[in-house]
Structures are given as C-alpha cells and as structure tokens.
Design a protein around this nucleic acid. Structure first.
Lengths: 133, 133
DNA sequence: TAAAAGACTAACAATTTTGTTAGCTATTGG
DNA sequence: CCAATAGCTAACAAAATTGTTAGTCTTTTA
C-alpha cells in the first residue's frame, strides 16, 4: 500500500482530528469511494471477489483489490481461503467490527433518503421556523 | 468553488454510487477532513467563524471557509447576519437536516471508541468465533 | 489448444482534496 | 496612526485518492 507522507500538514491534521474524537477516524475508515457499498455487498452474501466486481458497476479489479485491502487493514473484514477449492477460492467475511457498522451506515442511508425524498429543510432556531426548501 | 470534471470516471463513479444508494452521497457530504468536527462545534454553540477557528486547532481560514461553504451547499447549515452589529457579524446555524446528522455521527463516534478502547475483534461466522485481537 | 474464470499486482496517470501565502474590507482600542 | 479582531477570497502548491493499462498464475471448459 502507498505510504503517506508523515510530515505533511495533511497527515498531521488527520492524526490530530483522530485524537480529538474517534468519530473522525471512523469517518475516514468508511469514506473511501466504494467502501460502504462493499461492506453492504459482503453483508448480503456477495463475499467473493468476482461477485463484488459484478455488483459494483464500474469498479476496476485494481480499485476493488485496493479498497478490500484497506478495509482489511482496519479489521472491518478478513480474507479467508475456501477449503477444498483448486485453485483456492477466497472469501471476504465481516468481523464483528464490520457488522456493527452496518446499522450505522443504514441510518446514514435513511437520513440521505429522507431529505433526497423531499423532506422540508428548515432553520429550527429561527423564531418562526423558516422553510428553506 | 472549484468545479469538478464532469467527464471523469472519478466523477461518474461518484454519481453512479449516489444513485445506487443515498448512503453514498451521505458519506461524501460528511467525509471532508473537518466537516463532522465543524458540525459538532456549531451544535455546541461555537457558531461563529472565529470560534470555529479557535476550536479547530491547525485549520487555516481558507480551509475553514471552504468547508463551511460545502456544508452550506448541502443545506447542513446556513449563514446568517447577526443584527445590529457593525461590521455585521455572521453566525452559522444547523438546519434540521444538519441536526438530524448529529446522533448518527455520535453513533459513529461510539463505534470508533468501542474498538479503539480494546473491544475484541472476532470473525462471527467462524464456527468457533475466532479472536483476531 | 485456446479461451475463460478467478484473483490478483505493478507502474503510472488523472483527478480531487487539502493546505499555503498573500491579500482584502471595516471597525475598535491604545 | 498602528495593531488587532472579524471574516473572508484568489492563486497556487502539495498530497492523497481514484482510475487505467498491462501484465501474472492456475485450472477448467469448449
């Protein structure tokens, strides 16, 4: 995996934010382009490389492999050999840490849907709650 | 604000993922470097530019202004003039959309803390649940 | 015998995000 | 009059992420 520059402000700021609250590291774990989609697919049983590829339209093999490795490095999932297969098949399995993430991602999903679905956006602290949209 | 290249695979993939599930757009809204920290600070009453600056150690004015604009463009917050101030002061206010995000970010925070705090990581689907750490 | 499936990796290029520097405007305090 | 506070913006540079191309290896299937 590509190493980040440990002296850069970019890196230092990320470390600093991670210290302020674990929320910041949690977000950075989850915020890769395909990550939450991968977690959901594995959750739903698409636990092999080629199944993930089929279900993530537009992803390249290189990119998929990279995202999987990153998720593995954060112990969201593990990679296991499938016994008695030649050549040996691999499957990806969510750890308890990965599974615990699923309902949280789900609530993010609902939040997004609610407002995308047209829920009014207001400014509650205005004395007359004002409608923005 | 800087315009993205609308023909790039990068951009196209992001759009595609947003169509698959609102979770993906939700994550991309929240995943900027300082975003969740800004939302929390405003939530706790640090609702002015200089207060945010003081409470986000290491952020530059340029970067803060940019993150605020992005959050505003997603209607997570609004910027309002403070009446009877010369020169006119500005405050940032979370919309209902932004407020709804707070408990979700909070659960992400707890998830992060739990495992950072040493909770065992296991692979539940193994017949003998295996301990990784 | 040749192609396809499965599971990748290395090297590189494009794009995007993040950060730096140097400015601006207006008012108040010493 | 000079500095400080408040609240920014423009132009640019650095770093990180994402995507592309072209391979690898092994086995099964046509």
């Amino acid at each position: 995996m590509i190493m980040r520059k440990k002296q850069s402000s970019n890196y230092l700021n990320e470390q600093l934010l991670a210290q302020v609250c674990e929320r910041n590291s949690a977000i950075s774990i989850v915020s890769g382009r395909w990550k939450s989609q991968i977690v959901f697919n594995i959750y739903m049983g698409n636990d092999r490389f080629h199944l993930l590829q089929q279900n993530l339209p537009g992803i390249s093999e290189m990119v998929l492999a990279r995202q999987l490795k990153e998720l593995e490095s954060h112990a969201i999932l593990v990679k296991r050999d499938i016994p008695d297969t030649v050549p040996v098949g691999k499957r990806y399995i969510l750890t308890n840490k990965g599974l615990d993430l699923v309902p949280i991602l789900d609530s993010l999903c609902n939040w997004g849907k609610l407002y995308a679905g047209g829920k009014e956006i207001t400014v509650p602290s205005d004395n007359q709650a004002e409608i923005l949209r």
